[in-house]
Amino acid sequence: MNSYSLEIKNLSKNFGRRLIFQNINYSISSNTVLGISGNNGSGKSTFMKIIAGVLSPNKGQIVHLLNGIKITGDELFNHIGFVSPYLILYEEFSAEENLKIFSKIRGIKYDSEYIRMLFGKMNLYNRRKDIVKTYSSGMKQRLKYVFALMHKPGLLLLDEPTSNLDSEGKDSVYTILDEYSKNHIVIIASNEEQDLRMCGDIIYLENYK
């Protein structure tokens, strides 16, 4: 089993003169659920994007390690799963087409058995051939979990993981996370008490202003 670890060193971010957070230091490894909490506008999404490598910090760095070997920026995307309300999949394609296209662009094999299982868990199997445009916001959110987990990433980043989900959808997410966090790192950015209950430790961004 691969061991994933993450080292956050002196992480600081500001937009212009506005300080978002500063000097965050943290180390985590597989089998950890870390929570990120803070008021609206405190920088939770910014923090998640920096961890995912799609946004640059102003100071500090994040080191991703797989079995003790540093993952380069060009390879990072294949080790990260990301779910957020502002993540949008291609609405002109069906759910299955989206995932097949993503597999090809990632350069990985489309594991149909595993993806069928994910569709089943997220209760989307019967709608997998429908165009994403026709999905409700809750279904789109469920599909994002299939997208995030399809390549079995070592690090799962969930920004507001249960937004738009009904209680059944939330239960599915918690079940998946419970299983997934046993061997991987899961970081949850949320203010929902139920979401944060899963976390072993929580970073409150207000403490880093």
Partner: peptide, 20 residues
């Protein structure tokens, strides 16, 4: 405009995206 830039960033390296 479709809001899919983040999705692209999450599935491929910059070189792949530019070449495509």
């Amino acid at each position: 405009e479709k809001g899919t830039t983040l999705t692209l960033q999450l599935i491929a390296s910059p070189d792949t995206i530019f070449s495509g």
